[in-house]
Design a protein around this nucleic acid. Sequence first.
DNA 1: GCCCGGTGTT
Length: 588
Amino acid sequence: MPKMRPPPPPPPRTVQLSIFSWNSRLARYVKAGQYENAMRLFQQMKQEGMSPDKFTFVRVLNACANLPALEEGRSIHMQIIQSGCDSDIYVCNSLIDMYAKCGSLEDAWRVFNTMPSHDVVTWNSLILGHVRCGQGLKALALFQQMQQEGMEPDPVTFVGVVNACANEAWRVFNSMPKRDVVAWNAMILGYAKCGQGQKALQLSRQMQHEGVHPVPVTFVGMLNACASVAALEEGRHIHEAIIQSGYESDVFVGSSLIDMYAKCGSIEDAWRVFNRMPRRNMVAWTAMLGAYAMHGHANEALAHFKQMCEQGVEIDDITFLSLLSACRHAGLVDEGLCYFESMNSDYGISPTNEHYACVVDLLGRAGRLHDAEVLIKTMPCEPNATVWMALLGACRIHGNLEMGECIARRVLELDPGNSAGYVLLSNIYAAAGNWDLSATVQKLRLERDVRRQQGRTWIEVNNEVHTFVVDDQEHPQINDIHAELERLSVQMKDAGYVPDITFMLHDVEEEEKLFHLCHHSEKLAIAYGLISTPPGTPIRIFKNLRVCGDCHSATKFIAKLVGRAIIIRDANRFHHFENGLCSCKDYW
DNA sequence: GCCCGGTGTT
């Protein structure tokens, strides 16, 4: 929950305020997202003897929905019935939305069933409510039902369909007679969210080709897509289009730009956007904090957080996640623990599983496995798989077989469909030389039909994304890439590089291990970057998993030998390689 | 005046 703001200034007492001026004041609070203030204003207007009208109820219900505040919503529902406003369709739609957002679908249905008539917004609110509660199938059934009852779906209905089921979304989208910008937004955001950035970008191009103009939300979706596939050049083009559209001062767009530049490897551009924003909210500040965290700039992150506090910016649970994440990446154990303590005591924010996972990782990485385990045991709620997984990751880093086995058992129980647990345990066994048990775990994974994620590395050159997998033979310039790697490996050996085969956790002969190491997707992408971009320019590559340890040490040599900065984004963070060193100081 | 958008963990 965000920190409480100071109460709104009382309206002047000299003049009896009209209902219109109360309502417009209320509307301003709701629009600005100051829902607590809206609630307080509503109480105040009743105290001063002003009777709310249907416009008042719509706005105050909106505030309840967004807080969310179920009990207050129920009490307002009673007042609505007493005032006779419950025949207004706007009020009823707002009630459905409020109940759905507060998680009470039963109440939402009760309102729906007592309404004399429904419009498309009624159906949309109900459909989206079910989607939010994870009832996608029910949402789709409602979508069918509304059509059977002669109600024409609109683009917002389609937003619900996209979020309920991707396959269904595509079918409906193609059969829509008129696709306005809301429908396009839903598709673009839907694809961006599920990691299909290329598809999202392709859709946004198609949208513009069909003459539909992007609005701020569209740009947010497009920037998300760029961030997920790390398409920096494309992101810059979109930034230009944003400036041309006059949306550059939108805080949503600004926060997405910060995130896009940070995730594409350019923290300088992220800072430039943040610095130039005319109006910054908590999210913009938090996006910048997250940018520092993922690039390992811990000191800047802590200073940034301090500035947030000094300037009275709101702090929420996500701000703390970013802050703890900054400590985690830099190994600032004491600072991290101190901030974790202050969350509850100074800010009134209860730590979630995610915060615990972050602190467990912070302790675990630093080798304090026992402290991490104790922390988990003292959690006020039941730890989820993510928390245990953080400890399991630490067991792998520190080669703690005994604890790893025990933790893995819990992880595999809590989240049997996630390949990460199997892979970590199998790697713990392999690192200890126990190939039989390692294979047993992999066999169990296959028996349960859990597929492990294949490692992929990609690089954007001339607006085109080139993707590599281990031993890749598909790339048209693969021979040139191999030649470049051959050339480099001679120089690297002279400079003192020794391939580290412990990172090859397979039971194969050493010769073979070496061969695979030289053909890791990271090295292929770096070599391609070297031969296809001008000398001296930085190379940005991206990997879907954690970067391999041997590739990490090899990249330090390569960056020094070729005199170029190499920036790698792996699944967790950024590594900036320059002059033989990595920004993570080998702590990752 | 109601329904759709941004930041984080693993």
